[in-house]
């Protein structure tokens, strides 16, 4: 029984981790309708900066948030302004996909050039210390990630619902032409949204760096699962991505223990294929294709 509870708890923590990585991805997709294949490399960049700040300045890894989140915001905003926006008038949407894939490859190679192929371990400063609840154990850093994911989801939802800028972001997603007629500068909203999405993954990077070794290909490792989470949650839905992440986290943990740790990914991606076939709009995203009606 303890083992089962421990696995459930591990799954929950893993879910929090997947959630915090996926939120920015689903935000960018939901508003700009661009799949950012460089999302994982943004994460990797943020983790390297966290590592640099922690090792070079001897600070607590969480202190890096002051630098990483703004840097990632600017990176995201520039990606939209300089790479995606010039391609937005292109008739073929696939060009944007190729552009972000290209950016992803470029960033991986840039990381190899600067940091080499070695693994960078961020000093954990106590974040890998276990918290014990009776016989159940969790890492402090995991609990922090889970809490941050919840705060981020609620914070973003409040921002999108109750601020004029947040409403403008939703308006652009629901009817771009009408948003322009309201006096909204649509291109500004896109730049802001891409920046926000990247800033979210910056926060994720700071929280993940003390728990996972950083390398140039770490982004691919996380972001593949993030795509599954985003599809499961209904493309573009932030609470959907959160719930989707918890489900994938549990599936990953349970299948890893009961089916075999080698087969976890097979189970997760098997589930991904099933969702695509049976419920392509995701578990929580039935409205996605109705936005043009009104």
């Amino acid at each position: 029984m303890t083992t089962f509870l421990q696995i459930l708890l591990n799954g929950l923590m893993l879910g929090g981790l997947f959630a915090i990585v996926s939120i920015g991805l689903t935000l960018i997709f939901g508003i700009i309708k661009v799949v950012n294949f460089a999302h994982g490399e943004f994460l990797m960049g943020g983790m390297f900066i966290t590592w640099l700040i922690t090792t070079q300045m001897g600070l607590h890894p969480y202190a890096a948030v002051i630098v990483v989140v703004p840097v990632l915001f600017v990176m995201g905003a520039l990606t939209q302004r300089l790479l995606i926006q010039p391609l937005m008038s292109a008739r073929d949407d696939h060009i944007q996909i190729f552009a972000t894939v290209g950016l992803s490859t470029a960033l991986i190679n840039l990381a190899l050039l600067i940091f080499g192929a070695d693994i960078a371990n961020t000093p954990p400063h106590g974040l890998r210390a276990p918290l014990e609840f009776g016989e159940l154990r969790l890492l402090t850093g995991q609990v922090m990630i889970f809490g941050a994911a919840i705060v981020l989801v609620i914070g973003l939802e409040l921002f999108l619902k109750y601020t004029q800028t947040g409403r403008a972001i939703r308006a652009v997603a629901q009817n771009r032409g009408a948003a322009e007629l309201m006096g909204i500068n649509v291109n500004h909203i896109y730049v802001l949204t891409f920046g926000l999405g990247a800033a979210c993954v910056g926060l994720a990077a700071v929280l993940i760096a003390p728990l996972y070794p950083t390398s140039s290909n770490i982004g691919t490792y996380f972001v593949l699962t993030a795509f599954v989470v985003v599809v499961l949650g209904g493309l573009g839905s932030i609470p959907g991505a959160f719930l989707g992440a918890l489900i994938i986290g549990e599936v990953d943990a349970l299948s890893g223990y009961y089916i075999g740790s080698d087969l976890r990914e097979a189970v997760v991606f098997g589930l991904f294929l099933l969702i695509l076939i049976l419920r392509p709009s995701g578990l929580f995203g039935a409205r996605q294709n109705l936005s043009h009606l009104s």
Binding site: R167, A168, R170, Q174, N175, G177, S294
Partner: peptide, 16 residues
């Protein structure tokens, strides 16, 4: 009409 379909009427008006 071109309303924002998933927003409430009040939110639509505030966007105006």
């Amino acid at each position: 009409r071109q309303l924002f379909p998933d927003m409430t009427v009040r939110e639509n008006l505030l966007m105006g």
